[in-house]
Design a protein around this nucleic acid. Structure first.
Lengths: 176, 176
DNA sequence: CGCGCCATGTAAGCAGTTACATGATTCC
DNA sequence: GGAATCATGTAACTGCTTACATGGCGCG
């Protein structure tokens, strides 16, 4: 059910297509939620059926037609109700790399370094993507505080992750 | 499939029951994986069927009988193969609180503070649990480096989270 | 001429959650 | 007497992923 509220949250900011929602998930929400287009389109249908959102069909000559979704009154009410009333569910993280880290003792230093370098590269890419998004976002007018908060969170998360990786690298290369 | 490797990783350290695996998930792995007893028992059966693990039945007089699982040779091979060969899947995080944070602009300062306090309390509990575990773990002999790494990761994660929360609180209470 | 982007959708299968189920022992 | 701990399991359901499906436009 939380996907529903993630979607309501996004749509509450401004009317948007499913396609653009997918992009937001991939670019701005990787630090706290994830989903795929198939799940998102399906959920949007259900939400419209439950009268939380409604769409306007925009016919574009050149590119394909699109559905621009916006909140209904009952959608907005439900979003706020959820935010202030529903108890928080525990955070769930699936991070394969940290599973690999638990078995470092049965790997060689070479293998460990390779894995750490791989994850450092990945995280640096994510961090620079987030920083780019922050730049882009800061230059706009009427900035959304909610977005600002989570962008800042993402940067702190990635920086923490990278510092931990460097600390781990140092550990394995000092003792050797 | 990753749950399988999380389980292999745990069992690789020392033979263990499904029941104790559940406890490890809840106490030491919340920062990077999660599962429930029903999923774990089911997966252990499948893994035994695939000849990755085997069990010894321990009959206890007073408490219920238990199955102590250990890796087979093919299980250990597969675990290492996975660690060094399989490409990393992207980290997946489901953090409801950060969804709520995105809609702070449509909430009142009171409501925001209440939510932040709630999550600070939660995270402080987790952090102190992790620190306790670190203490307990450091006092043992033959400490496992993999565990040490992820404990350290958890502490850094929680501290980052709390610092971000305090920063957000300050932001909302300064502008008011 | 092929790839990526725009834009939406369905179907099948796998992963994960919640509920149901049992039963003895220990602690308050 | 009730709750928590030990210890395991199955069933039903919901959530999520991967694959299938379509088709025009712009860029190199």
């Amino acid at each position: 059910m939380s996907l529903r509220y993630a979607l309501l949250g996004i749509i509450s900011k401004k009317p948007i297509t499913g396609y653009d929602v997918v992009r937001i998930f991939k670019q701005q929400m990787i630090y706290f939620w994830n989903s795929t287009h198939s799940q998102i389109y399906t959920e949007l249908h259900k939400m419209e059926n439950d009268n939380l959102i409604e769409h306007e069909l925009v016919i574009q000559g050149t590119s394909p037609n699109k559905k621009v979704y916006s909140l209904t009154d009952s959608g907005k009410k439900d979003l706020i109700r959820w935010a202030i009333e529903e108890p928080l569910k525990t955070t769930k993280i699936k991070d394969e790399f940290l599973i690999k880290a638990t078995i470092f003792p049965i790997l060689t230093v070479n293998e460990i370094n390779k894995l750490l370098d791989e994850v450092i590269e990945r995280e640096e890419k994510i961090l620079s993507m987030t920083k780019d998004w922050k730049e882009h976002f800061s230059s706009q007018e009427g900035q959304d505080v909610g977005t600002m908060l989570t962008v800042e969170y993402g940067i702190r998360y990635s920086e923490m992750y990278l510092e931990w990786c460097k600390w781990a690298k140092q550990y394995f290369n000092e003792i050797k």
